[in-house]
Design a protein around this nucleic acid. Structure first.
Length: 886
DNA sequence: TATGGCACGC
DNA sequence: GACGTACGTGCCATAA
């Protein structure tokens, strides 16, 4: 078998991994992100390359022979953050556990070790590949030696052989040194020639091949400034070239054969992964240890309730009890309930679906609000049971919502991970029991369940019973109890009723619109094919890119990582250049309406009732906002008339009703005025000024009458940026201006609203100190990256610190308003119903005889949801469809 | 089946 | 040493 050697540039890969991944730490508080990333790459290499020999080279010592020639070498480089340097010993330990050779040599860099080893390997004609993030290494490429450069992220790499190098730079490997000699390298503090970047350097090298030859022909260089710089910085050019040259004859005792790799021993790797808490990687190396199957778990005693066993029913149906309803389908509006489990001081009980349906005792207990229940995802249980005609009341504690409030940035609130996270208790996940993806098989709800499934369902109630106390304590500690008991849990009930009520959507209206769209799309398609001179899939960005930029030779504005960018922003710039572009934009617009909204909505209308029943997700957004799925009713078009017409299909379900929409005007900016106590902003809202115009007046120092529409548009975008926490880059994108200009807009905004500036500074400081930010109602969001040494991660966390109190408080307010409104409707015995929430807007179905009272009541209640130091303002309108309630 | 590009809302 | 920029949902195409 032929030899295959892989050499990893240890420092470079570790750096890459460190900066590509968030600062993970394991349960001991040790940072592990670089180790984790390093391990993923390593596993990938082992799997994909199947090397016979493996070596990891590290830098050693701060001073290398390069410093003798140039003491500023790597001078400007910031010192390695401690969060990373502390991970290096563990990376070595990782390699030891894999029985992989690693090597370092005092006074030399990893580059030189790699240079020397690859030279030997090349002579022996070993197929060799170097994994690194350092472009310099491209100088090592030869027939036998290839280089894999890490790209974005950690696992994406780009492979270089001689052909690829020629294709990309039209250079030979040895010319990489010349390239760097001319252009320098700021990260290593290698000077190069001022004013010479990659483009110029490549041009020179394509013409003259080497630095030496460039100087031999220096008189031929016509560009005056360039020639001057080349002449003046001649020494730097040669020095830089020397510094960039990788040593290929370092005094290394290591022999090629010493790097032999014969596979790793699971017995050694598994303990290390466990120590690092690399759960997912354990699975990847096939550690059976992680596979806790239901049948392997200790069997627990579960008593199955029957309709007649009064004695057992008496034990099971008490207060308080943990209750779990196994609702298996993702969409709980159309899911069976496999059964219930109950855990209390008397033990653990299971109730099959037929028993639930039959037993009046159980149903009575379920709807008795005096019988306290602890539950996981009460809304799911309530809605699914409700579709079966069974009521659920008396939920005192929902572990799902509690886990969300305790850490709203988490992405996994499955019952098993909550149990694991808060009590260390291991129970099976649904995936382990039912399988996932195509292999997911759910038990037939008509048939008796297997013991394994009953155990699984029972264990969930068991875990709820155990984890509840812990969660309750934690909520109290984090001052989240009232948010939990008075806001989030009651809101869950309100949402359940909204979802169950559903919204009527007229299929006929959608059909008609769909037909018209289809024929217009047909026309557009024909025109586009005609203009393109060929038929292609307009929906494929890849094919579209080829047509626009290869065939029609339109200028490339932006690239994505897979090819040309063809998004609306790009197309709008190209629109004047070719007739086809406008057609494509229009096609996209109509196509979106057709596929996502017309066809998408039709799929989810329940035939019987003509209604759609969304699911409001209460644990997704870290700011506290809701989201809506299946269908998403929070993104129905409104901006453009063609899409807005869709709203005509959303109508009252009941005869003699209208739809009423009430939206908060500028709620986020009012919240900002309140929190920041900025005088100018407060006054603007007290006087109910047009806030964007007011912003423009202050930022551009003009009178109201002199505010142009452009100024207002810019001011509006700045306000938008403040509300959504976008960066100067984001603002520059949305206004199509330079980043500098955007930054100066933001600066001028802060000058005009000093209170806002102070708030932003204070909240970031506070977040750095406490590690989290809060909203008006104490919602909390942790920002572990706010003290990161990584500029990007830190900046992002800082913007989040500024934005979350604003957006989160707005979310608190409308949630409170929803609860208040639900109470009001009940109290006043009104027949009006709350149907939808769209972040700052509530939609009701209102009988005509209640229109007068509701148009008054809804704004009143919404505006009084909380008291701020500026008024809240609500606009209201109603009509025969959502379209007409504008 | 997973991922990327794109577009809709706030 | 790298670099990517409110969020969430859902569609389509494409690669794996």
């Amino acid at each position: 078998m032929s030899n295959k050697l892989i050499i990893m540039d240890g420092n470079s890969i570790a750096f890459r991994a460190f900066y590509a991944l968030p600062l993970l730490n394991n349960d001991k508080g040790v940072y592990t992100n670089a180790i984790y990333g390093f391990t993923t790459i390593l596993l990938k290499i082992i799997e994909e390359e199947q090397p016979t020999h493996l070596l990891v080279a590290f830098d050693a010592g701060k001073v290398t022979f390069r410093h003798k020639d140039f003491k500023e070498y790597k001078g400007k480089r910031q010192k390695t953050p401690s969060e990373l340097s502390e991970q290096f010993p563990l990376i070595r330990k990782l390699l030891d556990s894999f029985s992989i050779k690693h090597f370092e040599l005092e006074g030399y860099e990893a580059d030189d070790i790699i240079g020397t080893m690859t030279k030997e390997a090349d002579q022996e004609k070993w197929s060799t590949k170097v994994y690194t993030g350092d472009k310099d290494m491209l100088q090592l490429v030869s027939d036998h030696v290839h280089v894999a450069l890490t790209r974005k992220g950690i696992s994406e790499v780009e492979y270089y052989d001689l052909d690829k190098l020629d294709e990309k730079y039209q250079l030979k490997p040895e010319q990489i040194i010349d390239l760097k000699g001319l252009m320098g390298d700021t990260s290593d503090n290698i000077p190069g020639v001022p004013g010479v970047g990659e483009k110029t350097a490549l041009k020179l090298l394509h013409q003259y091949e080497t630095v030496e030859k460039v100087y031999e022909h220096i008189e031929e260089v016509t560009a005056k400034k360039l020639k001057e710089n080349l002449v003046n910085y001649r020494d730097d050019a040669f020095l830089s070239k020397a510094l960039a040259t990788i040593e290929r004859g370092a005094p290394i005792e290591l022999k090629l054969e010493d790097t032999v790799y014969e596979g790793y021993d699971k017995e050694k790797v598994v303990p290390f992964f466990k120590e690092m808490a690399f759960g997912s990687l354990l699975e990847r190396v096939g550690a059976e240890v992680a596979e806790l199957k239901e049948e392997d778990m200790e069997e627990i005693v579960v008593q199955t309730l029957t309709v007649d066993d009064q004695e057992l029913l008496k034990q099971a149906l008490i207060s308080p009890s943990a209750l779990h309803a196994e609702v298996t389908e993702e969409n709980y509006h159309k899911s069976p309930v496999l059964g219930l489990s109950i855990r209390n001081k008397n033990g653990l009980f299971f109730v099959s679906n037929p028993t639930v349906q039959e037993s009046k005792d159980i149903q009575q207990w379920l709807k008795d609000r005096g019988q306290e229940k602890w539950i996981y995802d009460a809304k799911r249980a309530e809605v699914a049971l409700s579709w079966l005609g069974i009521e659920l009341e008396g939920v005192h504690f929902d572990t799902y919502l509690a886990a969300y409030l305790l850490d709203p940035s988490d992405s996994d609130y499955t019952a098993d991970s909550i149990a694991k996270k808060y009590t260390g208790l291991t129970i099976s996940s649904d995936e382990q029991v039912y399988g996932k993806g195509a292999k997911r098989t759910l038990p037939n709800p008509e048939e008796e369940l297997e013991e394994q499934v009953i155990q699984h369902i029972a264990r969930k109630a068991d875990s709820i019973y155990i984890v509840k106390e812990k969660l309750e304590e934690k909520l109290e500690e984090a001052e989240l109890s009232s948010l939990f008991f008075e806001l989030e849990q009651p809101l869950g009930r309100v949402l359940a009723k909204m979802e169950l009520e559903g919204v009527k959507v007229e299929r006929k209206t959608l059909d008609d619109m769909g037909e018209e769209l289809a024929s217009r799309l047909d026309e557009l398609t024909k025109d586009i094919y005609e203009l393109a001179g060929t038929e292609f899939n307009i929906n494929s960005p890849k094919q579209l890119g080829e047509i626009l930029f290869d065939k029609l030779q339109l200028p490339v504005i932006k690239k994505t990582k897979t090819g040309y960018s063809t998004n609306a922003e790009v197309l709008e710039k190209l629109e004047p250049q070719h007739e086809i572009v406008g057609n494509i934009l229009h096609y996209r617009q109509l196509g979106k309406i057709q596929s996502t909204y017309i066809e998408g909505l039709k799929k989810v209308i329940m035939a019987k009732t003509s209604k759609v029943h969304t699911m409001f997700q209460q644990t997704i957004a870290a700011t506290g906002r809701l989201s809506s799925i299946d269908p998403n009713l929070q993104n129905i078009p409104i901006r453009l008339e063609e899409g807005r017409k869709l709203r005509k299909a959303f109508v009252p379900a009941q005869e003699g009703c209208v739809l009423l929409a009430a939206d908060y005007s500028q709620i986020e900016l009012r919240v900002l005025a309140h929190i920041s106590e900025d005088e100018g902003l407060i006054e603007a809202f007290k006087e109910d000024k047009d806030i964007h115009t007011k912003t423009a007046m202050d930022v551009f120092h003009v009178e109201e009458k002199d505010v142009t529409s452009l100024m207002r548009r810019h001011a509006k975008a700045v306000n938008f940026g403040i509300v959504y926490g976008i960066s100067d880059y984001g603002l520059s994108q949305s206004l199509n201006i330079t980043r500098k200009e955007a930054a100066s807009f933001i600066e001028r905004y802060f000058e005009s609203f000093p209170g806002v500036k102070k708030f932003m500074e204070d909240v970031v400081k506070q977040a750095k100190k406490d590690g989290y930010v809060t909203t008006l109602l104490h919602r909390r969001r942790y920002l572990p990256e706010i003290n990161s040494s990584n500029f990007n991660l830190r900046s992002f966390a800082e913007r989040t610190a500024m934005n979350t109190p604003i957006q989160g408080t707005a979310a608190d307010i409308i949630k409170k308003a929803m609860i208040d409104m639900a109470l009001k409707l009940e109290e006043k015995k009104l027949a009006s119903k709350l149907l939808l929430q769209v972040h700052d807007e509530l939609i009701f179905e209102v009988p005509k005889n209640e229109i007068d009272i509701m148009t008054k009541l809804v704004p009143e209640v919404m505006e009084a949801a909380v008291q701020l130091n500026v008024p809240l303002k609500v606009d209201v309108d109603y009509g025969d469809s959502w379209y007409d309630a504008k």
